[in-house]
Computed example of a mutant assay.
Amino acid sequence: MNSAQQRNVRELNSHYNEQHDKKIEQKSISNKGLVRRLSALGLFVATVMVATVITLQSQHTVLSQKIEKKQYLENELVQLQLVERDLIDEIENLNSLEYIAEIARRDYFLTKPGEIIFKLPTITAD
């Protein structure tokens, strides 16, 4: 079409055109609101997910530390149980007169009547 024919075409201000324009405008406003709501929801979900990840990471770190500490304490418990067993054996031995006599002979060179003690030097292997 040429420009003369375009000037001859007029737009009618009909009730239908006004309603159609209002519907388009309302749809545009509705879409903007929808985008805002979805953006807010997305931001909220992202915030919750970040908080969850941070919490899980910190709990994992604390749990790892506690597991390491538990293993260390279990090893220490085993060692202390061995020491306890040795001490119980020593208590039982110290309640025995024969063991006390053996220690007195070995450490203090005490003898029974008529007994002679010979102390031999210890030989070290180089």
Rank of each mutant, 00 (worst) to 15 (best):
L12H: 05
N13H: 10
H15C: 06
H15R: 08
H15V: 04
H15I: 01
Y16L: 09
N17Q: 15
N17R: 15
E18R: 12
E18L: 13
E18G: 07
D21T: 05
D21Q: 14
D21A: 15
D21M: 08
K22Q: 04
K22H: 02
K22C: 00
K23I: 12
I24W: 08
E25V: 02
E25Q: 09
E25F: 03
K27R: 13
K27W: 07
S28E: 12
S28T: 12
I29R: 11
S30P: 01
S30I: 03
S30E: 13
S30Y: 10
S30L: 07
S30F: 11
S30H: 10
S30D: 10
N31V: 02
G33E: 14
G33R: 15
G33L: 14
G33I: 05
L34C: 12
V35N: 12
R37L: 10
R37N: 14
R37H: 13
R37P: 06
L38S: 11
S39W: 07
S39D: 14
S39P: 05
S39I: 06
A40H: 09
L41R: 15
G42V: 04
L43A: 15
V45I: 14
V45C: 07
V45K: 12
V45S: 07
A46Y: 05
T47L: 13
V48H: 03
V48I: 13
M49W: 03
M49S: 06
V50Q: 02
T52S: 07
V53N: 00
V53R: 00
V53H: 01
T55P: 01
Q57A: 12
S58W: 09
H60V: 04
H60E: 07
T61D: 07
V62F: 14
L63Y: 14
L63C: 10
S64F: 01
S64E: 09
K66T: 04
I67Y: 01
E68T: 03
K69E: 13
K70M: 04
K70W: 00
Q71G: 00
L73T: 01
L73D: 07
L73C: 03
E74W: 02
E74M: 03
E74C: 03
N75Y: 03
E76N: 11
L77M: 12
L77Y: 14
L77N: 15
V78W: 02
V78Y: 09
V78L: 05
V78F: 08
L80Q: 06
L80W: 02
L82H: 15
V83Y: 06
E84P: 00
E84N: 13
